[in-house]
């Protein structure tokens, strides 16, 4: 028995040593434009996020031991793809804001930093106080302007265009989901006042969804469930009344755990403006959807708290 243990242990050591020679590359491309933020905010983000979400990856010796190094390299690769603070200049001001709100939400929901990473890199943990600093920074960026002429103009333009709009073929998203015009006949399962990006939303559910809410069968949601989330600009007057402005987009989530197996059982689609322009450059836009919905994995990837009607 002892001899067997010795041979087994030696074999494992030999394998581990040989593994050290197989090393994926972690590149350090130039920083084209780093995130600009107040010192205290930036310090937290650098500490908690920059190893994977910037080109300034700082590897400790224990990150470089195989087989851990494989996982580290993959985290860095995926991390930079989703959000890279070193290429901040490549994003529009609106996208920068969107990314920051998403990042802070990922932290608040406990999805980031990744548990296994934070377990080893204890300094990457974001404390309650740190989170408050980040949230206050974001709140400080919210500016709601009453009687915003640009927004009023955008709405009026859409209204004028509506009268001479002709019926066209139903558009299709880049992952092959056809626009569903029927959603405005569905029931409302919630609304959302998105002060982070100045929009307001109505979330509709089809009959399957409404029935599931009534019967409390919503985790997981049954196959056939469809949500439609329509978004408009928020138009505020001087009395604090906020009405819907220009139509921004409608997003669909279609539940089919076989057909949409690779995207967590949901088919995602987004159509922008009243012209219903399919979102994204190619079918891979769903990676964005999945990443953002990941913190909701215990709720079948759904953010909405449905209302019973």
């Amino acid at each position: 028995m002892k001899k067997f243990m010795f041979i087994a242990a030696s074999a494992i050591i030999i394998v581990l040593i040989s593994l050290q020679f197989f090393r994926p590359e972690i590149s350090h491309p130039p920083v084209t434009g780093d995130l600009q933020a107040p010192t205290n905010v930036k310090a937290i983000l650098v500490r908690a996020c920059y190893d994977c979400h910037s080109n300034q990856t700082n590897l400790r010796w224990y990150d470089q031991v195989q087989p851990v190094y494989w996982q580290v390299a993959e985290h860095v690769r995926q991390g930079r793809k989703g959000l890279n603070f070193s290429n901040w200049d490549k994003l529009s001001p609106m996208d920068r804001k969107g990314k920051l709100w998403e990042a802070v939400n990922q932290i608040e929901q406990g999805a980031m930093p990744i548990k296994s990473y934070a377990f080893v890199h204890t300094d990457a943990k974001v404390s309650k106080q740190d989170l408050e600093v980040l949230k206050n920074y974001l709140i400080g960026m919210v500016h709601e302007t009453p009687d915003d002429t640009a927004k009023i103009h955008a709405r009026n333009k859409q209204l004028q265009a509506k009268t001479n709009q002709t019926q066209q073929n139903l558009p299709e998203s880049l992952n092959g989901i056809t626009y569903i015009p029927d959603y405005n006949n569905w029931q409302v399962i919630s609304t959302s006042d998105r002060f982070d990006n100045g929009t307001m939303r109505v979330i509709y559910g089809n009959d399957v969804a409404v029935k599931a809410v009534k019967e409390h069968h919503i985790n997981p949601w049954p196959n056939g469930t469809i949500f439609a989330k329509a978004a408009w600009d928020k138009l505020e007057d001087k009395q604090g009344n906020v009405t819907t402005g220009a139509f921004k987009q409608v997003e669909f989530m279609i539940k089919d755990n076989v057909k949409y197996r690779t995207t967590n059982g949901w088919g995602f689609a987004r159509f922008k403006t009243p012209k219903l322009k399919p979102y994204g450059k190619d079918g891979m836009f769903t990676t964005e959807c999945i990443n953002c919905h990941k913190p909701m994995k215990d709720n079948d990837f759904v953010f909405t708290f449905p209302i019973k009607n």
């Binding site: 919630s190 985790n219 019973k308």
Partner: peptide, 22 residues
Amino acid sequence: AIFSGCKPSPGADVLINQKASL
């Protein structure tokens, strides 16, 4: 258990917006 964040999924009672329901 630590790494998989072993906790039960929230039920419908938590996820349904009871306050706002009609």
